[in-house]
Amino acid sequence: MPTPWTAAGVQIEQRAALAARGFDKAVNVHLADTTEKREDACVLLNRRYAWRGYGDHHTLPSHCGCATFAASDETGVLGTVTLVVDSEARLAADRIFSDVLDSYRNRPERKICELSRLAFDSGLPSKPLLAALFHIVFIYGYHRHRCTDLFIEVNPRHRRFYEAMLGFKSVGAVRTNLGVGAPSQLMWLEIATIRRRMLDAQWDVAIGPSRSLYALFFSNDDVATLAETLTADKTPDEFCENGPMVRIFVPEC
């Protein structure tokens, strides 16, 4: 399939899809819900965290409000991210940002969640794969748990990435995360704005290159299929028995 171009003659980067288009790479996205899968995700997580100077002793949260996603191919785990939905166990960010998070969780009809334990293999991610994994997590969090507000802790030097790529906003002052021995900025995204951000990014990319990952989120048809798949009334064991939770195809780098 030929790669599309903008009106200005700039090649448009292709998004991931649920169907192969000829020159795509198959990637399996699954829940790391077995000991083996969690260990594989942890190996990648600690290797990448150690490379950044954050230590190599990190574990994945395992209470019922957590869902760790891992993207893999025939070579192994390519990336992992964990979604934690607010519960009696609260969020990891509550350790240093509880006052800020309480100001959101105490609002009527709000349900907060956080992204944590994000790591990708050193040669990755390509933007389409990164966008696809984020979009799958967003769909899962909204359609399965009806989350309204998403938070992430980042090193302040990465703040601009999350602002430009996903529209996160900084909330609260920079504080010290003793778990990784580094400064930490809490960032927030209202989940209800994601669809508008996708539409805006798709309009922008028709004019010229876009930095936003929203331009590479799944098509509307794929979103409908993913929402149905990710909210199916299945236990984690049933997902495992049927293979990956989702198989996606990303453009070859």
Score class of each variant (00 low, 15 high):
N242V: 05
M165E: 04
V250N: 08
G9Y: 11
A215S: 12
R159K: 14
A224D: 10
A132T: 07
L230V: 01
V246G: 06
H143C: 04
K127L: 09
C42K: 07
F161I: 14
D40N: 11
W51D: 11
T3F: 11
R160I: 08
I112M: 04
R197V: 11
L83N: 09
A16M: 10
V171F: 03
R247L: 11
T176V: 06
T148E: 13
V10G: 15
P61V: 07
I194Y: 01
Y142P: 04
A192Y: 01
T229P: 00
T34I: 03
H145Y: 08
G141H: 00
M245S: 01
V84M: 10
T34P: 00
R107V: 05
V154C: 12
L83C: 02
E190L: 03
M165P: 03
D200W: 13
A173T: 13
M198N: 08
R38M: 14
P125T: 09
S87R: 02
K111N: 00
L189M: 06
H145M: 02
H30V: 08
V85R: 12
L78Y: 10
S98T: 05
R195L: 13
R196H: 03
T75R: 10
C64A: 09
F151Y: 12
P156N: 06
N28L: 12
D40H: 08
L45V: 01
K111E: 04
V100N: 10
T235I: 03
H135M: 04
S122Y: 13
W51N: 14
A16E: 06
R105Y: 08
Q14H: 15
F161A: 15
C64F: 12
L83P: 01
D121H: 14
C66R: 00
S116V: 00
I152L: 15
R21H: 15
S87Q: 05
V246E: 07
Y140I: 01
F138W: 10
E238H: 10
L216N: 03
E36A: 05
S72P: 00
E252P: 11
L45H: 00
F217H: 04
G79A: 08
L133P: 01
R159G: 15
F218E: 12
I248T: 08
R105Q: 02
K169D: 13
F120C: 11
V81Y: 11
H63M: 02
R146G: 11
H30P: 03
D73K: 06
T193R: 01
S219H: 09
Q185N: 08
V223R: 11
E163N: 05
G76R: 06
H145R: 01
L18N: 14
L124Q: 11
S103M: 11
V174H: 07
L31G: 05
E163V: 06
A192M: 04
I191Q: 00
I248F: 10
A70G: 08
R211H: 13
I194K: 00
R117A: 02
E114G: 05
R52A: 11
R110I: 06
Q14D: 15
R107Y: 02
T231V: 03
A164C: 05
